[in-house]
Structures are given as C-alpha cells and as structure tokens.
Write a protein that binds this DNA or RNA. Structure first.
Lengths: 284, 284
DNA sequence: TGAATTTACGATGGACGTAACAATG
DNA sequence: CATTGTTACGTCCATCGTAAATTCA
C-alpha cells in the first residue's frame, strides 16, 4: 500500500540524487530507505529509478511519479495548513465575489489585521457558492451582491450602489447628457456568462421594463470586460465601485441616470454571529 | 502524522455516517477506527466530527477536510492508475495539439485499439510541452504542427495541409474568387493568444511577406474561434482539417489560394522508436 | 579500495482485536 | 436495552537499525 511516508521518501531521494544522502536528510538508515523504495516500486508495479554506482537516475515513470508526488504533497500540506487554522480563535475566513474582493474588502481587511486577526480570503464567482460556504462554516463572512433572504442565514445589507455604463471614448453615447437604461441595453452589450450576479441583475431589470438586452458577447468569468470594451466590441455595465477604480485611457464610465438600476452589497453570516461581527461591519 | 489510511478511514466514516458502519465496511474493529480518528484529529489539532448517539455529524473543519480528502484521493488514484500503465507492454501514450487530437488522431487510435493497445490520450497546447513529454518518456508519440528538427528526438512529417479563412456568410470576401493571404491579414483577425503554433505560423508568414497582421481579438486557448466569427467580430484562419469538420451554419471556410500558407503535421518520437512505430504512422 | 545499493536478521513500536465501559434515546 | 462511541490491554506485524554482502569505477 502506497503511503505518504513513501512519497516523502521518494521526493527526498530524487531531490538529493542518492539513497545515501536522502537517508541522512530523512534521519533513517539507508537500508530502511532501500526497503521502502523497493516496496513502493513493487506496489506500483513499476521501476521508478535506476540505481547506479554514482547515484540514481529517474525512469520516465519516475519522472511522472515525481511530478505527481509534488502535487499530492502540496495538496496535503495546503489542507493541513487550512485545517489547523480552523479551530484557532484569531482566524477569520472571508469570501466574496471577485469585484467585491478587489474593490470593497481592503478596508475591512486592514481593520481585521489591526485587531490581530489572521485573515483568509477566498474569491468565488457566485452568491450561492458563497452562501453555502458560510452555511457549512468554511467562511465566517461572505460579501455578495443582491442576495435574497434565506431563513437559516443572516444577510446584512451594507451599501446600495448605482450601475455605470463603460464605453470607448469615441462612442456616440458619451455625448448624451443623461444616459438611460433603455438605450444602454439596445447597444452591443458585453457581459459575463451566467452565473454572474451582475448579469442576473441586468436581465431582471430588463424584464421588469419589458425589454430584451442586446447581449453580443459573453465572456468567461476569468476575462476582463474592460479589455473588450477598449477594443471596440461593445459596451458593458459595471457597479460604481468597479467604474471608480478603472484606469484605462480609452474607455469612459458614466452613471445610468434614467431608469437606473442598483445593486445591494450584503454581508452573509450565520445568524448567531451577527452580533459579534456587527461592529466590524458598520463602524467604518 | 497524517496517513493515507487515515484519509480513507475518514472518508468512509463520513460516507457511512457512523463509526460502526464504516468499521464494518473497512473490515477493522470499531475501536481501532475510533483510535485512528482521534489520532487524526489530534494531529490536525482540530475536531472533525461530533459524535452523537445516533451517529456522527461533521464540523465545518470536517466538511472542508472531507472535500480535500476526496481531492487528495482522486489525485493519488489517478497517479497510481497512470503509473501502473507505464511498464505495461501494451500501453501507448499519445499526445497532440488539441485540434490534431480532435480531427487527426481518431484513425490512429482505431488502428491501435485493433492491435490490442491500451491508448492514453493527452492534449497539450504547445509543441514544446509535447516534445518534452516525448523526451522524458511520458508520451510515446506526439503529434505537433510545424516543429523544427531537434538533435535528440525524431520529427517525422506526416501531412502538409493548407490554411482556410473562416468568415461569416455575409462577409464581402465570400464573393472574391481567389482569396489571397495579404487581403486576409488586413481584415479583423481573431486568433488564439501565444503560445499557439497556428498563430506563430501566421505571424511568420506575415513577416516573410513584409506585412503586419491586423489581430483585433485574442482568445484564450480554451475558447472557440468559430463562435466569435459567427458573432461577427472578425475572421479567423484555421488548418484544412479544422475547416473540413466545421458544421456551423453562419460561417463559411475558403482556402487561401494566393500566397498560401501551409502547416506540416509531424509525429514526434524517440529516435530509437521510429522503426517500431513506422508501420503505424504510414500504413493508413 | 571506496562509493554506492542490497540482503539478512533481530528488536521495537504502532495498529489491530477482544473485552469491558459509558452515554443517549 | 439497543445502539452509539470510548477506554484498556495484550498480540502481532511492519518498519527500523546493525552488520555483512554485492556491485561498479
């Protein structure tokens, strides 16, 4: 049976290039290491390295196994590190939608570090992933957009912010005095693919107003909307905090004034934790 | 010390919902399981599950650990599966660029299966990844595009194929009788980001002819060029075998007749393996 | 001969099982 | 009292270390 010890031994052998040196590093005798290595090879049914009088040399299978062992050990070590933080009092795990993490969380994180918390940050792309992580205890707090109330979990509204249109500087709409939502959704829209809370908010606003958005391009959640706007493929709609922090030259952000839509940024936390985190959330 | 056995035990406990049932499934006594579980929790410094008279209930840390254990075991099992195939005589590992895998390999694979080989397929995005995999023995054969000869490895040319332009049906160039490369690269080009052998071939052809391609959109290697052509963002250039197998209605593929460019599809293999795979590569 | 790995074998400790115990509904 | 999990203790096998053997430069 493969064991973690054997994996560690194998990694040491490869890294030190000899059983001898590896055995010294591992504080075991060299015969013991030989034994474990042959047991490992036997259990895998495959030769991993060639023994030479000058040291060892990896076989193809050995090279593959070495890479995989590194991956396995990294996964295990990361797991142990996370787990060890779970029962520590001064650790707080915070999650949020990527744009909230980027633009909104920094001030909270500063404050938490002042209070001697170790902070773990985790970005997730959907509200439901985040809410579930709070529910099952992986996150202490999650920051979401337009979440609906649920019975078992507290959703605390924090800010309401308007949406902005982002378009290239040469776009005719730049000259319009008061930008309205109905004109905006007739333009070529670039949005993220579902599931994306902003996309959902726009669709919802559209159906309330009885129009269909003209979505011409749908991006993966990992790509940058602004890049595509800059290249002239269309316009996009982003929340104020994203618009505020844009630095691109070629694009312009303008608030949607007529028939505006807003999003509510909320904190999600367990009901019995609301009181303990209340001061953190509001005293800013 | 964390061990793989402990991970397996923990997974069984969670899945069976009780130490009792898990111990039966694992063919060990229930006290032994209790012992291992408490050792695990002690080594992690963290409680993983709450014991109740009706069974067990996961703590947040336990839920996290459960997910990670699944990931770890999947990684380990996949590794063992791959390794076991390494020294088997009847296993052959083949790699290739994604489009070669999709359009070109199937006939080889059929043939290999006829010959009672177990075939492992691995797609990689660059020639150099593939060539390295052959060099270090992870792959027996790799199919690449426009590879240059290297001293230590054999590169066997297999087919030369022309490139096609892909454009929307309404594009003016559809009406041109003889499509030429110089006009094509003046159009809005959609290509994959570097590193991409096709992109490299196009850039190379351009610099030979003293022109600059008008690349307006660069996609991630995981996205579909054709989708973006269909939506009217520009045109693209693909090898014949990709063009031949397109089924989209809205787009049309036409061969580049004037100043054409070609790609050479080659098989990469170790020099001392050429003779043994020769019949496979050419007898089709 | 010296540097490497492998084989042989006795010692030790960790993991197991049995049996007895404790708690909950 | 039936089901759950825990504690106690003796047994046994896996892994270790020491020492001797082997192989290659």
């Amino acid at each position: 049976m493969l064991s973690i010890e054997q994996i560690k031994y194998f990694l040491a052998i490869v890294e030190y290039g000899s059983l001898n040196k590896a055995s010294q590093y591992l504080f075991i005798s060299q015969p013991a290491l030989t034994k474990q290595l042959s047991l490992l090879e036997k259990s895998l049914g495959c030769s991993l390295l060639l023994r030479t009088p000058t040291g060892i040399k990896l076989t193809p299978a050995g090279r593959y196994f070495y890479e995989r062992c590194n991956l396995i050990m990294e996964t295990i070590n990361e797991t142990i590190k996370q787990i060890k933080s779970f029962d520590k009092e001064n650790v707080i795990r915070i999650g949020g939608l990527p744009n909230l993490i980027t633009y909104f969380l920094p001030k909270y994180i500063e404050k938490l570090k002042m209070m001697n918390y170790e902070v773990y940050i985790e970005a997730m792309h959907t509200n439901s992933q985040l809410i579930n992580s709070v529910r099952n205890g992986f996150l202490n707090i999650a920051f979401v957009s337009d979440a609906v109330q649920e019975s078992d979990i507290a959703i605390v509204p924090l800010v309401v912010e308007p949406f902005f249109v982002v378009m290239s500087a040469s776009h005719p709409m730049v000259k319009t005095e008061e930008i309205d939502f109905l004109s905006v959704v007739k333009e070529k829209l670039i949005l993220y693919k579902a599931p994306c809370p902003i996309r959902a908010a726009i669709r919802n606003h559209c159906s309330l107003m009885g129009v269909t958005p003209n979505i011409t391009l749908e991006l993966e959640l990992t790509e940058s909307l602004i890049n595509y706007v800059e290249k002239g493929f269309g316009i996009t709609i982003v929340p104020k905090m994203v618009a505020d922090s844009m630095s691109s030259q070629g694009v312009i952000a303008r608030e949607i004034k007529k028939f505006p839509l807003h999003r509510v940024v909320s904190a999600v936390l367990k009901k019995d934790c609301v009181s303990s985190y209340k001061s953190l959330l509001f005293d800013i």
